[in-house]
């Protein structure tokens, strides 16, 4: 090509190659197939859809008006629900901190301790709070203690995972500076790293507490204390007007805890 000829630029530009376009369509086809498979495998009774709106309207009618006379009876379990969430979260914080340092690559002692830390994280997180509740009801017997243990067991992994990530992302500079003063390992963690991850620790703790208030409201289903017991009993007795009162009460508590959690997290700097 001669140097003084006007340079020609392409007038066609495609974001994807034909191969990439084909791959995109194949992914969509795969998703459609997976959906169709799920529907057919679940053997859904489509006739139930026909009168679903009638059933829903009927349920709403049976719920209304809420039986406010039931409210005094559920105040104590409601408070108990919040206590379960709070105590469970507090216990989780205590255990999550050492676990986080164990599960963070830059603070764990070696590959083995890291694997142990990660294993504990996964074990805690992969089991639902209600399942933990079932397990601890078997251990401690029914009651709020099982609920507290269940909330703590599930929250430890949640808190430790997020704090471990914060530890791994902590600025290396201050850590280096504290190391160079001749501080011991524990002091390096305490002065060099902990202040850096404290906002994350406080923020996730408050957020987890808020989640735990919601989760504690169903722990009563498996006998692990709290308002869930009253909800479960009311449903089983078809006392729909009581069910509505319980649901409204839970709604108010959840809104309040969420607002408190958002407010506290907003103030952390």
């Amino acid at each position: 090509m001669s140097a003084n000829a006007a340079k020609r630029y392409p007038e066609v530009w495609r974001r994807r190659t034909p191969g990439e376009t084909l791959a995109g369509w194949l992914w969509i086809a795969a998703a459609a197939f997976a959906t169709a498979w799920s529907v057919s495998a679940l053997d859904i009774e489509w006739v139930f859809f026909k009168d679903a709106h009638v059933q829903a309207a009927d349920l709403a009618e049976r719920m209304w008006p809420p039986r406010w006379a039931y409210l005094p009876q559920i105040l104590a379990p409601l408070v108990e629900t919040i206590h379960i969430a709070t105590l469970g979260t507090a216990i989780a914080v205590v255990f999550s901190l050492p676990l986080a340092f164990l599960a963070a690559r830059n603070t764990t002692a070696n590959g083995f301790t890291w694997a142990v830390g990660r294993g504990l994280l996964v074990a805690s997180r992969s089991v639902n709070t209600v399942i933990w509740g079932l397990i601890f009801v078997a251990v401690f017997g029914p009651g709020p203690l099982a609920g507290v243990a269940a909330v703590a067991a599930r929250s430890v992994g949640f808190l430790a995972k997020l704090v471990a990530e914060a530890i791994e992302e902590a600025d290396r500079g201050p850590v280096e500076a504290i190391e160079s003063t001749g501080a011991g390992t524990g002091q390096v963690y305490l002065i060099g790293i902990l202040p850096q991850v404290l906002p994350v620790l406080i923020g996730t703790t408050v957020y987890r507490w808020d989640i735990n208030v919601r989760e504690s409201s169903v722990l009563g289903f498996v006998g692990a204390g709290g308002i869930g017991l009253q909800l479960y009993a009311s449903i089983n007795q078809f006392m729909w007007q009581q069910v509505l009162v319980v649901l409204l009460a839970i709604l108010v508590v959840v809104i309040l805890s969420e607002a408190a959690s958002a407010w506290i997290r907003g103030r952390i700097s």
Binding site: G182, I191, Q196, P199
Partner: peptide, 28 residues
């Protein structure tokens, strides 16, 4: 290391601690 003081380009202070806590960290 106690006998070797080090000063850094990025200062490497612990940002969320006070000036006093940072100074005293030299005594750790």
């Amino acid at each position: 290391r106690r006998r070797i003081g080090m000063i850094f380009q990025e200062f490497n202070l612990v940002d969320r601690l006070t000036v006093m806590e940072n100074l005293l960290s030299g005594r750790l």
